[in-house]
């Protein structure tokens, strides 16, 4: 595992994360992430080739709901927390 994060690495991850960072943040995050990743590298000691990954804390399967209608929210409620609407739609700056 690589443990040092360059400024470019940090900026690439920030872009994937949609986070606008100040220069100071880029520097401190690079350092902090680096030290955490260095610590995390201890997992390399373990051979896990034959181990099944465990994505859930408790193993369950086949949980369904029936195809039955539930009441939807009225539009005012659906839009009530939106930063910008026209009363019918969520509005965002021009996408194209």
């Amino acid at each position: 595992m690589s443990v040092s994060l360059s400024q470019d690495d940090v900026l690439k991850v920030a872009s994937l994360s949609r986070l606008k960072l100040s220069e100071a943040e880029v520097n401190s995050l690079g350092q902090q992430m680096g030290s955490v990743l260095k610590y995390i590298a201890m997992l390399d000691e373990l051979n896990t080739d034959a181990i099944e990954p465990m994505a859930h804390a408790i193993e369950i399967s086949n949980v369904f709901r029936e195809d039955e209608l539930q009441t939807s929210l009225p539009r005012e409620k659906a839009l009530s927390n939106a930063p910008q609407t026209d009363g019918n739609y969520f509005l965002v700056p021009a996408i194209l």
Binding site: V63, E66, R75, N81, N88
Partner: peptide, 23 residues
Amino acid sequence: HPNTQTCPVCLGLPGALPVLNRE
């Protein structure tokens, strides 16, 4: 009738959770 067939789950509201439709 935009935005009349939504709920916390399909709005992706914080805390809402998906449950699979059997059909």
